[in-house]
Design a protein around this nucleic acid. Sequence first.
DNA 1: CAGGATCCTGAGTAAAAGCTCGGATCATGC
DNA 2: GCATGATCCGAGCTTTTACTCAGGATCCTG
Lengths: 206, 206
Amino acid sequence: MKTPIQERARATVEHVITAAAQVFEEHGFAAGTTNRIAERAGVSIGTLYQYFPAKEALAVVLVERHVAAMEAALNAWVARTVSRPASLREALRSLVETALAGHEGQSRLHDMLLAQPPLPARVRALVEEAEARAADALAGVLRTFPQVRRPELRRAATLAIQATLGLTHWFIGPERGLARGAFVDETVDLLQAYLASGAPPAAPAR
Amino acid sequence: MKTPIQERARATVEHVITAAAQVFEEHGFAAGTTNRIAERAGVSIGTLYQYFPAKEALAVVLVERHVAAMEAALNAWVARTVSRPASLREALRSLVETALAGHEGQSRLHDMLLAQPPLPARVRALVEEAEARAADALAGVLRTFPQVRRPELRRAATLAIQATLGLTHWFIGPERGLARGAFVDETVDLLQAYLASGAPPAAPAR
DNA sequence: CAGGATCCTGAGTAAAAGCTCGGATCATGC
DNA sequence: GCATGATCCGAGCTTTTACTCAGGATCCTG
C-alpha cells in the first residue's frame, strides 16, 4: 500500500472509498467485488490495489470513518448540550436526531461489515472503545439533569446508547409503516422514561 | 432437492443444518464453504447438495428455524402470562429472559445471515411478518395491564420488541463487562418505564 | 432374497474473484 | 525540455469454491 502524495491521487482514493460504500451497500461484502468497485470509482483495478492492500482494507476504512463521524457528532452534541442547557427531553431529542442522521442513507452497511468475520479483531475493538467513550460522555451529560435518577448511571448510559442504536438500525432498514417524526418521538419517550426511573431491585414502588 | 424419506436421511439433514450453523457462526457466510460444512457434518459434499439446492438454502433454513423458534417462545410467553397473571415487572422479566434464551450461544449468526443480500427478499419478508405478529401479540397482552399507559399501544409494542432485540443482540456479542442478571434488570427497567409512561407531545408532565 | 428405491460418495468441472506486474501516462523541479 | 518519481492502466494468473455426476452402498418391500 502506498499513501497518496499528489492531490489527484487523494481524489482517486476518495472515489474508491465512496464507490466501495455504494457497492457494499448494494451487493453486500462478499458479492461486492473489487473489480466492480474500481469500475464504479472510474479507476482501474490496479489503481485500487495501489492504495488498498486487500479488499478488507476498504471495509476497515469505511468502519473507521463511520465510527469517527459518529464520535464527532456525539462530542458536538455534548458541547451543545452543556453550553446551552435545555430540558432533558430536548437534549434527548437532539441526541436521537444525531444518531438517526448519522445512519440515514447507509441502511445496514456498517452492521453488515461488522458482522463479517474477515474483519480483523482490531476493528471490532475500535468500535467497542468508541462505544465506551460514548457511554462515558453521555453519562457525564446526564449527571447534570436532576430528573435522571438511575442508580448506575454509567450502565444506564450504555443501555441507552445500545437501545438507541438498535432502534435506529431497525428504523433505517427496509420501509416500515412508521413516520420518521413518530419514531423520534417514541424513542425520546423511551429514553426519557427509562432515565428518569429510579432503582427497581432496591425499593419496588408500591 | 430431494426430501428425505428414511430416518437415516432425516438425521443426515439435521447434521448438515447443525454443521452449517456452526460453520457460518465461525467463518461467516462467505467463508463458510459448503465443503467445510459437509466435512463438519460428517457427510460428503454430494450428500449436502442432495438436500439443499444451493448454499443459500442452508441460510434460509437457519433463519426460518430461528424465526419459528422465537415465535413459538413468544406465544408460550403470551399463554403463560394471560393464564397466570402476575405483575407487569414479572411479565416483562420473563419476556426478556425469553428473548435472551432464544439467542444465547448463537452470537450474531442470524444478524449476519440477514445482513447478507444474497438471501432472497422472501426471507426478510418472513422475518418482518413474524415481527408484526409478535407486536400484535405483545400489544394484546400489554392491554391487560392498567399501568401501561402508552397512547399508541401497537406502536409502543413494536418499539419495545425492537429495543429488546437490539439490546439482546448487543449483549450476546463479544464479552462485555456486564453480568447477565444486571443486564436483564436494566432491560426490564427500561421496558417498564417506557410502557408505563404516558403521552408526551400532548401534556408534558411538569 | 431379489430388485427397486433411497441414500451416499468424492474426484472433477467451470466460473468467479482477488490480486499482480510490466509498462504507459502525468506532474514537478531543475 | 528532460529526468525522476508519482500515478494509473488492464490483461491475465492463480486460487478458491459452488456445484455435478456416475457409480457404489444401504435399506425396504413383496
